[in-house]
Simulated scan of single mutants.
Amino acid sequence: MAQTKSGGCQCGAVRYQAEVEPDEAYLCHCRMCQRATGGVSIAFVSLKKTDRQWSKGKPDYFKSSPIARRPYCRKCGTPLGFEFEDGEYCDLTIGSFDDPSDFKPKHHFGVESLHEAWIDTSGLPRKRADDYKPLVDRWMNATGKIPD
């Protein structure tokens, strides 16, 4: 069932509203996404371009290949998505939504570049950022609070 969700970049210069199906999310492992984000994969949700509206500011676009481009914030560099220029669909990055908690991955894409060691990390020790005193001290000294 489609939901209206909002999101945007880290600095707040670019914001959007989108009609999305949270169960239609996926992880892309292709080398282009790895290079564009600096990660081993990226989480996306696909939707019609007409179901996405830029509500504050407009993103810049990086032409990442002869057939596709990627919206991002020119001020803070946040990757916001992926789209074929001639297609009716686009992808938005799950991490750019204000509340990404209800998205569920449906499949993997670009599995020829998948890094298996990064798929199931459930057995690794877990550390909370707000329990790491040097980080907490830096935030408190800089802003007086811990960020969301």
Results as ranks from 00 to 15, higher is better:
Phe82Met: 03
Thr4Cys: 01
Asp60Ser: 14
Arg138Cys: 11
Ser101Met: 07
Pro125Asn: 02
Val111Trp: 10
Ala25His: 01
Val111Ser: 14
Asn141Arg: 13
Val136Lys: 10
Ser113Leu: 09
Ser41Pro: 10
Arg74Asn: 12
Lys133Asn: 12
Ala68Gln: 04
Lys127Asp: 10
Ser122Gly: 10
Thr4Ala: 04
Gly81Leu: 02
Lys56Tyr: 05
Thr143Phe: 15
Asn141Pro: 10
Arg70Tyr: 05
Gln17Thr: 14
Gly95Ser: 03
Pro100Gln: 07
Thr78Gly: 06
Cys30Ile: 01
Gly12Cys: 01
Asp86Glu: 14
Thr4Asp: 05
Leu80Gly: 00
Gly81Ser: 01
Ser46Gly: 15
Arg15Leu: 02
Lys104Ala: 05
Thr93Arg: 03
Cys90Tyr: 03
Thr50Glu: 13
Met140Ala: 12
Gly7Asn: 04
Ile119Trp: 07
Met1Glu: 10
Thr50Lys: 15
Tyr16Val: 01
Ala18Trp: 00
Gly12Pro: 04
Ser55Asp: 07
Gly7Thr: 01
Gly12His: 03
Lys133Met: 13
Ser64Asp: 04
Phe103Arg: 07
His107Asn: 12
Arg74Leu: 11
Lys75Gln: 14
Lys106Tyr: 00
Cys90Asp: 09
Glu88Asp: 15
Leu114Thr: 06
Gly87Leu: 11
Met1His: 10
Pro22Val: 00
Trp139His: 11
Ser41His: 14
Leu80Pro: 01
Lys5Cys: 02
Leu92Phe: 00
Glu112Asn: 12
Val136Asn: 09
Arg138Leu: 15
Cys76Lys: 04
His29Pro: 02
Trp54Val: 01
Val136His: 08
Arg35Val: 12
Phe97Trp: 06
Cys28Leu: 06
Ser55Tyr: 02
Phe82Asp: 00
Cys28Asp: 08
Ala25Asn: 04
Asp130Met: 09
His108Ala: 03
Leu92Met: 05
Arg138Ser: 13
Ser55Glu: 06
Val111Glu: 15
Gly110Phe: 08
Asp98His: 03
Ser6Gln: 07
Arg52Ile: 15
Ser113Asp: 15
Ser96Cys: 06
